[in-house]
Simulated scan of single mutants.
Amino acid sequence: MTPTPEPTPTLRQLLAFYLEAGVDCALAEEPLDRLLDADVPAPRAETPPAAPARPAASPMPLLRGEVAPAPEAAIASAREAARTAPTLEALRELLDKFDGCALKHTATRLVFADGNPQARVMFVGEAPGRDEDLEGLPFVGRSGKLLDRMIAAIGLDRSKAYIANVIPWRPPGNRTPTPQETQICLPFIQRQIELVNPDVLVTLGNPSTQALLQTREGIMRSRGRWFDYDTGSRVIRALPTFHPAYLLRSPSYKRMSWQDLCAIAKALAASAA
């Protein structure tokens, strides 16, 4: 028998698929017809005078509206600014005024944190997504709902936990933050952890684990193992685990995640004793 061909998806179904995949913004103002003959040259404008030589471009192409800061100067400025913040509110105000990271100029708003600043456990992911960018709170989309169910399973909710990201602004199109962007934002999340001063730090996913715990191992090898996170004034127990977004794509790893959650609950109980 001739197999029945699959029905052609409707425009609404295609748009829903693209949105689910994170494709929710255009990279150019004008549409590009990729079916045109590649051998036909596009019309060219009059050649402008040659510009002076410029430094080499950053590894990740900048999108419209992004401004590339000098990496070393931006990192040094971030370290100095973060160091001077005496409170979480002051740190948030510094981030609002900080212009050293290009992501700020393409994001809708700053995504600083959610939950209880007095909590004994702090969860840190990589960067905000589309829903977080719109609401200004971390972990409010599908992965956020899963995180809520995960921590509820060990008797926690957002009133008993503090949640943040290494990167406080959404990268355009949910692209991966560049190493430069991570290094610029790192002093702020490090100061945030120091000010919250939790008993247990949970890094969600590979990027936040490698950035905060200074390991090159992948999440499969690092998850479930306890690390020491030194704030300079105190050593905090830290446990890497899978990011909820990864669990949505690979639900078979939820069993390992549950083991990590049980270890977190046990550590919190021991520190309270």
Rank of each mutant, 00 (worst) to 15 (best):
M1F: 13
P3S: 13
E6P: 15
T8R: 12
R12N: 15
R12W: 01
L15K: 11
A16D: 14
Y18F: 15
Y18P: 04
L19P: 09
L19W: 11
G22D: 03
V23F: 15
V23L: 15
D33P: 00
R34Q: 14
L36D: 15
L36N: 10
L36E: 15
D37T: 02
A42L: 11
P43C: 02
P43W: 03
P43G: 08
P48S: 06
A51M: 14
A51N: 11
A57R: 13
S58K: 05
S58H: 10
M60C: 14
M60G: 08
G65N: 07
P69G: 01
E72D: 11
E72Y: 00
A73D: 13
I75H: 05
A76Q: 10
A76G: 05
A78R: 05
E80V: 03
A81M: 01
T84Q: 15
T84R: 15
P86G: 05
P86K: 03
T87R: 02
L88Q: 07
E89M: 05
A90T: 08
L91G: 00
E93Q: 09
G100R: 12
C101D: 14
C101K: 11
A107Q: 08
R109E: 12
D114H: 01
G115Y: 01
P117V: 10
Q118N: 08
A119Y: 03
A119C: 04
R120E: 15
V121K: 03
V121D: 10
A127C: 06
P128V: 05
R130K: 11
E132N: 05
L134V: 08
L134T: 10
E135W: 01
E135V: 10
G136N: 07
L137V: 04
P138I: 04
F139D: 04
V140D: 09
G141L: 01
S143E: 04
G144K: 00
G144Y: 00
G144C: 02
R149E: 13
M150E: 09
I151Q: 08
A152I: 03
A153D: 14
G155N: 01
L156F: 00
D157H: 00
A161C: 07
Y162T: 02
I163Y: 04
P179C: 09
P179Q: 03
Q183I: 02
I184N: 08
L186H: 11
P187Q: 05
L195F: 04
L195G: 01
L195N: 02
N197D: 10
P198R: 01
P198F: 01
V202Q: 10
V202P: 09
V202F: 12
V202I: 08
T203H: 09
S208N: 07
Q210T: 10
A211R: 01
Q214P: 02
Q214T: 09
T215E: 06
R216Y: 06
R216V: 08
R221E: 15
G224D: 11
R225I: 11
D230Y: 11
S233Q: 13
R237L: 14
L239I: 06
T241P: 05
T241S: 08
F242K: 06
S250C: 12
S252A: 07
Y253F: 12
S257D: 10
W258H: 14
L261P: 00
C262R: 13
A267V: 06
A267P: 09
